[in-house]
Design a protein around this nucleic acid. Sequence first.
DNA 1: ATTCTATATTAGAATTATTCTAAGATAGAG
DNA 2: CTCTATCTTAGAATAATTCTAATATAGAAT
Lengths: 140, 140
Amino acid sequence: MAATRPYANAYDLLRESGLRPTRQRLALAKLLFDGTDRHVRAEQLHGEALADGIRVSLATVYNTLHQFTEVGLLREVIVESGRAYFDTNISDHHHFFCENSGELRDIPADQLAIARLPDPPAGKTVKRVDVILHLADLED
Amino acid sequence: MAATRPYANAYDLLRESGLRPTRQRLALAKLLFDGTDRHVRAEQLHGEALADGIRVSLATVYNTLHQFTEVGLLREVIVESGRAYFDTNISDHHHFFCENSGELRDIPADQLAIARLPDPPAGKTVKRVDVILHLADLED
DNA sequence: ATTCTATATTAGAATTATTCTAAGATAGAG
DNA sequence: CTCTATCTTAGAATAATTCTAATATAGAAT
Ligand SMILES: [Mn+2]
Ligand SMILES: [Mn+2]
Ligand SMILES: [Zn+2]
Ligand SMILES: [Zn+2]
């Protein structure tokens, strides 16, 4: 189940998502969907792209991350004011957030359960349930 | 149990919290701790202060909100990138967040329970558990 | 293959929320 | 009343993100 033919996978992923497989989107998709679960920030992904010799603007990285999120390839995680993370793990799960390192770490769905979810106010639906466990260093 | 003598209460609150009861802090404390649970943004509180004829800078509002949070009089709630809310309800509870209106609404602790909280990574403690239910309009 | 047009990319400016700086004001201890 | 640590503030600075409007490209149609 290793990621064979990553180019073809990225291409298909985009086509199936209704997004034009442009050079930039293909390159970013290959970086993002390499088979591992990642929590990326825009600036960081941009850096990785440049390091790989891919010429892409930061604006396009932002555009692409949002488009991928809209079509359900990514999920946005909000942990801190002024910081957006994009998560390649779109399955139901939650997060530890370490405020010291800025690192996000998955909590598998089976390790945290919510009992008795309240009803939303009239005329609204619950679109997303975000659980963030904020971590701090354990110092006596 | 109505809020009698709001000035004295604000004064005592600050003294007990180890904060100098300055004119600005007293005024902001009176606006914040009026007995109702509030979810305020800095800019908004600044507007309210100015509307009340209280001369205070936005920088001081930010400083004060953070100081109040540090001493436990407030709690910061993060719901969206680049948006911090300060909550006067410091008891254990969670939130609905309506992405359309930007409104935060309390979910009392007894209406939502978390079962099986995972262990934090070694050397860390869970400092805070944030549960945000993101709401969207219910349109067929 | 060539043309055409909707869609995508981009540099750079703009925006927004927040924090920083460093100079002046004030609380309150002595 | 003095003095000093603490506080407030205007304005600049920062950081993340979005916007603008000019250029480029994908891919459908010829
Ligand atoms: Mn977004
Ligand atoms: Mn803060
Ligand atoms: Zn995740
Ligand atoms: Zn609340």
